[in-house]
Amino acid sequence: MNKKNLRRVISAMLVIALAAVFARTSDHFLSARNILQLLREASFVGLVALGVSFVIIGGGIDLSTGGIAALTGLVCARLSFIPGIPGIAVLLGGVLTGVACGAINAFLVTKVRLTEFVATLASGFVYSGLALIIAFRRNGIIESRPILNKSFTVLGTHVGGVYYITIVWLVMTVLMMLVLTKTNFGLHTYAQGSNPKSAQMSGVNNNFIKSGGFLICGFCVGLGASMVVAYQSAAPVTLGSAVAFQAIAACVVGGIVLGGGRGDAIGALLGSLFLTLILNGLMKYGLSIAWQSILQGGIIILATTFDAQFMKLPIKRRVKVKPGTGKEGH
């Protein structure tokens, strides 16, 4: 078994072990209803993690996903109040908003030449601000207005107990897995994340890969946020406040190494499941938000240390450079 698979199996076993613990201590944990609810909760973080994993594997980072989610949600809400608009059009509007945000990120990184960190930190603020501008207000105070457009909110429901957002998440994961492993774009993303210089020398278009990552990320976040809004029948301005960092955390826990070149879509999926499971399960034990937060941090430290120490991941070999000695005297 190679290390890639080993890491995946470890993540999967952790998820199963955690589930087993909760199943022993809580009677209704293994009920179909509870599991499907859990999956629904994991889906949003999962979709965002899936998107952001592309950027991370390509050697970048996207901190703006929270802002994108908030903006997308409100665009959906606004659209849904247009009389007679079909739900699918609202969804499309949401997804396009996400893609547009991704395009702006790509522009900032490839054309303005900001680093990914700075570009998405800044754009995230801008997207959150835009979300506040288009938020519903009564007497100047922001309010969350219930969405009554049935053709849209139906996207937030389930079929045979499985929520649509979960289906979308799983389908997207399979799709992205194919893109990462079967397409030139996917391979080039790994190459770029591992060693941008040598990738470029081999004919990889760095800017194209970076832009593609941000667009895919925007797409996934837009899709996820729209579906969540449909489920909640409302678009709170706080929709994305925690999701950006949770998604990055999920990636790290799932074996996607910050710095690039390692990990895959399955990792993002497993990481999201693990985080949701642990937060959800601990809530049932009555652990306070404070402890959940501390625990989440601890898990990230553990996962990263594990990857660095036991998986022997990014170890740089010291390559000696010959000093250019000028010769003299003979």
Partner: peptide, 15 residues
């Protein structure tokens, strides 16, 4: 200048 995350085949045909 190889990419560690890719296989032998993928590296040889990279680009």
């Amino acid at each position: 200048s190889l990419i560690p995350a890719l296989t032998v085949t993928e590296n040889i045909f990279l680009g």
